[in-house]
Computed example of a mutant assay.
Amino acid sequence: MTDNTRTQVKATIRRAMKAAERATNELDATAMNELGVLYQSVLSEIQFLVMNAADELGEVRLSQLQTLTREIETLLDQLAQTQASMVDGYIVQAAQHGGTTFSTTVAAATVSQSIDEAVLAVRTMTHKDGLQLSDRLWRVDCHAREVITQAVERAVILGQSASEAAQAFRQRSQPVPADIARNAGLSNAAGISRTVAQELMVNDGAPYSQIKRVMRTEINRAHGMAFQNAAFEDEFVVGTQFKLSPNHPKPDICDMHARANLYGLGKGVYPKGKSPWPAHPNTLSYEQVVFVDEVTEEDRTSQTDRISWLKGQSRKGQKAVLGHDKKVAALQQGHLKENMIATPWKHLEPLLKRKGIDTGTL
C-alpha cells in the first residue's frame, strides 16, 4: 500500500473513530434521559398507590400496609425487568458504534465477530469484586425493593403507633409529647410519597443514581471493547492510546494510565490485551488507535514502568494517583509494588504488615 493511500485510510479511520465517539456520547445521553423518564414514571405510580391506600384523613393505616407493599414490589419487579432490557439494548448499540469504526479496513464478518465478542464479554465478565453485570443489576433491584418498602413500612407502623399514643394523651387531656406528635404525621400519604421520591431518586446511593452509573459504565465498556477487538484486526494498528476526557474532573489513576510509556509505544499506548481502560466505573476516559508508523524513536527509548513513573511525579501527583498519603509514603520508601498501585489502603496495610513493615511510621 502506498504511503499516500495509507495516509488516506488512516484519515478515514480517524474520522470514523470521532464519529463513533460522538454517536456513543449521544447514546449515553439518550440512555440517561430514558432512565429518568422510566424512574419518574415508576415513582408516580408508587405515589398513586400510596395516595390510593390512604383513608379519608389522608393516612395510610396498618390494615392497608401488606397490600400496598405487595403492589409496590410488583412495580419494582417490572422496573427491574425494563431497566435490564434497556441496559442490554444500549450495550449492543454501543458495541456496534465501537466495532464499525474499522469497517473500511477490516472484513465485515470480523467486525461483526468483534462486536459480538464485546457484547458477550460485557454481559459475562467477572470483575475484581467478583460481580458480573447481572449481579450489579440484581443489587440495584434489591436495594430499590429494600429502601422503598422499608421506608413505607416504617412510616405506616411508626405513624399509626404514634397516632394511637397521641390519641391516648388527648383523651387524658394531657399534652402530646413532641416526638410522638412528629411521628404521628409519618403515615400521612403525602409525606410517604415525598419519602419514596427521596429514597428512589435523590438520596446518596439511591437506586436511580446506581443504575445510571451501571448504564454509563457498561455503555462505555461495550464501545471500548468492540473498538479494541476490531482495531487489532487492522495489520497496521500497534496499540490503543488511553485518553483523558476534556471533562476529566480531577487527577486520578487515569492520569498515570494516559501518561506513562510502559511499552515503548508512546505515552498511554498499550498493545493488544494490555490496556487498563476502563480504569474505574463511570469513567470519562476513552481510547484512540495508534498506527505502527506513528511510534517514534523517542517513544521506543523512553519506556518506563509504573513505579518509576510515579516516583517522577510531584507528591501531589502521587497522591492523586494513589489516593492515600500512606501509600505515597510506601512508594517513597520503596515498599510499593506495581500490583499494589490500585489496591485501597485498607486492604494494602494488612499486607504490608505481614511483610514486616511498620505502617505506623509511614
Score class of each variant (00 low, 15 high):
residue 81 Q to M: 10
residue 114 S to L: 11
residue 95 A to S: 09
residue 73 E to A: 09
residue 63 S to K: 09
residue 79 L to T: 01
residue 48 F to R: 10
residue 57 L to V: 02
residue 59 E to M: 13
residue 78 Q to D: 13
residue 78 Q to K: 10
residue 69 T to A: 08
residue 60 V to G: 02
residue 100 T to H: 12
residue 115 I to E: 00
residue 155 A to E: 05
residue 153 E to R: 12
residue 141 D to Y: 06
residue 112 S to G: 13
residue 53 A to C: 05
residue 112 S to M: 07
residue 61 R to Q: 06
residue 151 A to P: 02
residue 51 M to S: 04
residue 53 A to E: 00
residue 152 V to C: 11
residue 82 T to H: 13
residue 135 D to W: 00
residue 73 E to S: 14
residue 136 R to E: 06
residue 114 S to N: 07
residue 47 Q to M: 00
residue 81 Q to T: 13
residue 65 L to D: 07
residue 100 T to W: 09
residue 92 V to R: 06
residue 74 T to S: 12
residue 125 M to T: 11
residue 82 T to C: 08
residue 99 G to E: 01
residue 132 Q to M: 15
residue 133 L to W: 07
residue 90 Y to A: 03
residue 141 D to G: 13
residue 134 S to C: 04
residue 64 Q to I: 01
residue 50 V to H: 05
residue 55 D to E: 06
residue 97 H to E: 10
residue 131 L to W: 04
residue 98 G to R: 00
residue 140 V to L: 04
residue 77 D to H: 11
residue 131 L to D: 05
residue 130 G to F: 03
residue 120 L to K: 11
residue 65 L to C: 12
residue 79 L to E: 00
residue 122 V to M: 13
residue 49 L to R: 04
residue 70 R to Y: 14
residue 43 L to F: 03
residue 97 H to C: 08
residue 135 D to H: 08
residue 97 H to K: 03
residue 93 Q to I: 03
residue 52 N to E: 14
residue 114 S to Q: 04
residue 81 Q to S: 13
residue 67 T to C: 10
residue 82 T to N: 11
residue 56 E to Y: 10
residue 133 L to N: 04
residue 80 A to H: 12
residue 154 R to N: 11
residue 91 I to L: 01
residue 72 I to G: 01
residue 139 R to H: 08
residue 76 L to F: 07
residue 49 L to Q: 03
residue 67 T to M: 13
residue 137 L to G: 04
residue 69 T to S: 14
residue 149 T to V: 15
residue 83 Q to W: 03
residue 44 S to N: 10
residue 93 Q to L: 00
residue 112 S to L: 09
